[in-house]
Every structure is written in structure tokens, then in C-alpha cells.
């Protein structure tokens, strides 16, 4: 299984990254090498092995159902790159070509 430039371009869309043509070229090579390297895991027979997603055996950690202080609106908005009164300001999601 080898990685093509078109694969990398598609992944860059999924990853929400705009890549330059040079970056696409470089990543096609580098990711290809990394993918070939990690394919060594295929040597292992893991048919009956349960995946381990987490090192701890904790399940269902519950918190008390009590009200605690949380960030107020000003604090939450304080780091917003762009805001409009009480809202985060973002470019149009549909239709509008201008990004405002």
C-alpha cells in the first residue's frame, strides 16, 4: 500500500490543513516512509488480541451533580481572534464567497 500525492491532498482536506505544492511533495515522501515503517506491525498476529486504548482500567468515573463556578462569557471570549459583542465571529459557512 503506497501513498500518492492525491491521497495526501485528500487527507490535508480532512485535517483542515492547506498545504503548498512543496509541502505536498515532501509529505508524500515522508508520510510514505513512515507508513512503510509502521507496516511492520502487520508481522504480528493480533487476531485474538483485544485493543488497548487506555492504560488505566477506569470505567464510568462520575462527578457529583453539583454546580461549580465556570468561565463567564467575557473570560471565554477573551482569547477570541475575532468577536462581535457576545459572539465569536467566523466567516460565512454557506454560499458567501467573501470571508468577511
Amino acid at each position: 500500500m503506497s501513498l500518492t500525492r492525491a491521497d495526501v491532498e485528500k487527507v490535508s482536506l480532512l485535517a483542515r490543513l492547506a498545504l503548498t505544492p512543496d509541502e505536498l511533495d515532501a509529505l508524500t515522501v515522508q508520510l510514505g516512509e513512515i507508513i512503510r515503517y509502521v507496516q511492520q506491525l502487520g508481522e504480528l498476529d493480533t487476531r485474538d488480541v483485544q485493543p488497548l486504548s487506555h492504560a488505566m482500567d477506569l470505567t464510568n468515573v462520575f462527578a457529583d451533580d453539583t454546580l461549580l463556578p465556570s468561565l463567564d462569557r467575557e473570560q471565554a471570549l477573551a482569547n477570541a481572534p475575532k468577536r462581535d459583542a457576545e459572539c465569536y465571529r467566523v466567516p460565512a459557512m454557506l454560499g458567501d464567497e467573501s470571508s468577511r
Binding site: S12, L13, R16, V90, P91, A92, M93, D96, S98, R100
Partner: peptide, 9 residues
């Protein structure tokens, strides 16, 4: 969309 382009850029 403008939003997607903003994310990626």
C-alpha cells in the same frame, strides 16, 4: 466555504 478556507489557512 469561507469558513473552511479560514480553518485550513
Amino acid at each position: 466555504s469561507g469558513l473552511l478556507r479560514m480553518y485550513r489557512q
